[in-house]
Design a protein around this nucleic acid. Structure first.
Lengths: 189, 189
DNA sequence: CGTATTTGCCTAAAGCTATTAGGCAAATAC
DNA sequence: GTATTTGCCTAATAGCTTTAGGCAAATACG
């Protein structure tokens, strides 16, 4: 059999696609090898381990999500920025559930610091510039926004909202509105 | 070897303990068998499959958490109830990280309906009675509270807040205060 | 162009988890 | 005190992970 042309890069991209199709924790060296039509062992020249592969997918997804959020935030401020941030976040999770799940992988501190985690933190802080909130409240607010968005997306994805007839879309708008109002009230007078 | 006295009940309880020690997704039929000093296969008389075991642990944890929340809510209303609910939720996750992770297992609708999921929804709604919020806002608010609490606990557990010096405890209080203020403002005049 | 080296993919092999089928003996029922 | 249930077992299959070591295609370079 000729060479397929595997690289770490290609494996991670394919892994991300696989994650979206079958779920992040079903991403396996074996499944990936099948997808490329090569033997399982061949992947070990490109990734150190299954864990290593998953870390790679996580970093890739974090970068991709950060790019999207950055795009969404460009030229916006205040509530506009807040809504755009929220939408970028949620849309990514809906389009790429597996990659979104990957972003929640627990990374060791060094790996996380090297990745796009910093960009995410900075962008969340950037939103708050429109609300005039000083430290340490700013950090509290960053944590709250992160919690709401991640929590909502996570609950929605796991089917937590499917028992009521209320449109999740409306809840999402209501929440964004509420957060905006809350942040305005919290502004440092 | 004599009989050890396995039952489905005991397996689920031990599985919950194991989850807290090594993480919910490291809970495995094999590990559980080792813990009881019996052969792996012996567990199959009591649980149908690995998935079945995990579902059992999830339902157990949901029940336990609902009990705690119910205790916390007893005799409280308004912000008091909100804070107690939040604390019960977060404390459970900190004391029992594996069980908390189990509560997030995706259950098929029937299983979920049969479990304590309903109690959780009712209790969250009960909190809002102190805020005079009518439908459909009530549902939006329920979703928001669920999102914040779950999101915060989830991010905190995965180390997401360890990069800043700001005390997570303070952020938590700030968030509860903010939610209280927000709900009061949202009250149906 | 031809030799040398790198490197991509392979076979072999061992260890862990999940799961099914079927057996024996301890506990229990009558 | 026999009969039946049932708890734990051995045997066996199958999938995922990972290490060690091999061969040949691609590439480097004189």
């Amino acid at each position: 059999m000729g060479r397929v042309g595997l690289t770490t890069e290609r494996l991670i991209r394919a892994g991300a696609e696989l994650a979206d199709e079958v779920g992040f924790d079903q991403v396996t060296i074996s499944a990936l090898a099948r997808r490329f039509g090569v033997k399982v062992v061949s992947l070990y020249s490109h990734v150190k381990s299954s864990q290593d592969l998953k870390t790679g997918i996580a970093l890739f997804a974090l970068e991709e999500l950060a790019d999207r959020v950055a795009d969404a935030l460009a030229g916006r401020a205040g509530k506009d920025a807040l809504a755009a941030f929220a939408a970028a976040y949620r849309d990514y999770a809906r389009e790429h559930p597996g990659r979104y799940a990957a972003t929640r992988l627990r990374l060791d501190p060094e790996t996380a610091a090297a990745g796009a985690g910093v960009r995410h933190a900075q962008m969340t802080r950037a939103i708050l510039r429109g609300y005039d909130i000083a430290e340490p409240d700013q950090t509290h607010a960053v944590r709250m926004l992160g919690s709401v968005f991640h929590g909502y997306v996570s609950l929605e994805m796991s089917g937590g909202f499917s028992h009521t007839a209320v449109d999740p879309e409306e809840s999402w708008s209501w929440i964004v509105d509420s957060l905006d109002a809350m942040l305005r009230n919290r502004a440092t007078a």
